[in-house]
Nucleic acid binder design. Structure first.
Length: 429
DNA sequence: TCTGGGGTCCTAGGACCC
DNA sequence: TCTGGGGTCCTAGGACCC
């Protein structure tokens, strides 16, 4: 049996752990640039009219009228809290799949079926005790069912955040109480196709003809259908897999026309992705740079372009990648536009120790490689970005994300530890 | 004035090879 | 007039997830 443990409105819960004064009050967390609502606690959800991904400026009045506390997203804090949750889950099982920052599949096959209900409640209580974060627990024979059990656990108050599918009756009950669109892995398009067959509930879908499912929804649909019928098709993935591509793309804090500032932002993002690349021990064979204006705007002239540069030899050197990226940026940049976003993607990744050197590659043990190592060492000792390339410049404030209401990084920075009677960084709009 | 970011998996179709 | 068939690799795009 498999448990799916999912943190309740995770980002908002993390903020509340350090702000006990906000217990029972509405809290939301905003996306980069404080653009959209990306998490809302149950008090905020209860207000309704706060749909996820709504731009903040459209619902500012509602937030204000209801005294909703808003936070900029603080990923450093959330990532650290997430690890604490995961560590607690490992006390219950050696096999844990970290599915996302706020949810995990936990293998419970070493427990007897009649213990599962008790174990599920224990998981919930211990995570809350250790981290302050509330979670829901769904238990079933397959990942897809445990995912749905988890949703159901949270939806019905009497479940108290836990639902265990340990009988055929409960499986049918669970599936018949979920609509087609609530099935994990069924999105907008698939919902339409499935509902066109007359199916209304997840149980209807599980009872439809498999050949139809295979034909219309491909193998992905077939696996899902089997999983809902208690036949496990999806294994728990415990090894963190090596990424196939690494990228970053962020909107600027304001629109930018000036090439030199955009190139500084680009350099900054290259350094960021190159760092991730080295951390996983890969080298990139290709680098893509793209640039775009604000496509929401009706008044601005629109332009977007991208360029993909194939490198002679795969590399993970920030210096080389920056050089290539800026060459590319120069080619696609056109003056006269107000740009909103720049992005960098690395792909064709290979293990760094298996790099095929090209015929003309002469710098096997180049100076830039040694230099890169020294820079990494300095940055890991003195803090991120303390040493950087001059191309990054020092005008970060001119392009960086807006995070007006970020809470302190309570758990990862000594200088930002929780203080009693300390200042707060959230705001009432 | 103000609209997120980072992923995975699968399929169809084109290019190319023998 | 008649013009094969099978295979691989790559890419773009669709669909979905958090």
């Amino acid at each position: 049996m498999i448990a799916l443990v999912d943190c309740n409105s995770f980002y908002a819960s993390c903020e509340q752990v350090f702000r006990p004064d906000l217990q029972g009050k509405p809290v939301v967390v905003l996306s980069n640039n404080d653009g959209c609502v990306i998490a809302a606690n149950k008090e905020a959800k209860a207000l309704a009219h706060i749909p996820m991904f709504q731009p903040v400026f459209k619902i500012k009045n509602i937030l204000k009228a209801n005294n909703v506390t808003c936070f900029s997203s603080n990923y450093t804090l959330y990532a650290d809290m997430s690890q604490r949750v995961m560590d607690t889950l490992r006390e219950f099982s050696p096999i844990v799949e970290e599915y996302s920052i706020d949810e995990s599949f936990v293998d419970l096959s070493h427990y007897n079926n009649d213990e599962l209900d008790e174990i599920a409640h224990k998981i919930k209580e211990r995570v809350h005790k250790n981290t302050g974060v509330p979670v829901g627990v769904g238990v079933a024979k397959t990942k897809s069912l445990s995912k749905m059990a988890n949703k159901f656990a949270k939806k019905i108050p009497e479940n108290n955040g836990v639902f265990v599918v340990d009988s055929e009756e409960k499986r049918q009950f669970l599936l018949s109480s979920a609509k087609v669109k609530d099935i994990w892995g069924v999105g907008r398009k698939h919902t339409i196709r499935i509902e066109n067959t007359g199916a209304k509930t997840a149980l209807d879908f599980a009872n439809t003809n498999l050949a139809w499912v295979r034909k219309e929804l491909t193998v992905v649909g077939e696996r899902l259908w089997r999983e809902l019928n208690n036949l496990p098709c999806l294994e728990l993935v415990t090894e963190t897999s090596v990424k196939k591509g690494i990228g970053t793309a962020k909107s600027f804090g304001k629109k930018l026309a000036d090439y030199s500032i955009i190139s500084e932002a680009t350099s900054f993002y290259v350094a960021e992705v190159a760092d991730l690349l080295r951390q996983q021990g890969s080298a990139a064979g290709c680098i893509e740079v793209f640039l775009q204006t604000n496509y929401f705007s009706n008044s601005d002239n629109q332009y977007s372009n991208k360029i993909i540069i194939t490198l002679d030899t795969p590399t993970n050197s920030t210096i080389k990648l920056t050089k290539e990226a800026l060459k590319g940026l120069k080619k696609i940049y056109k003056p006269g536009y107000r740009y909103k976003k720049v992005g960098v993607n690395l792909f064709n990744l290979v293990p760094e120790n298996q790099v095929q050197t090209s015929l003309f590659y002469e710098e096997h043990k180049s100076e830039s490689k040694e230099l890169g190592k020294v820079i990494d060492a300095l940055n890991s000792k003195f803090g991120k970005n303390k040493v950087k390339l001059a191309t990054v410049g020092n005008r970060e404030k001119d392009w960086a994300l807006i995070k007006e209401h970020r809470s302190p990084r309570f758990t990862t920075q000594w200088s930002e530890l929780l203080t009693i009677g300390g200042k707060t960084s959230s705001i009432k709009l």
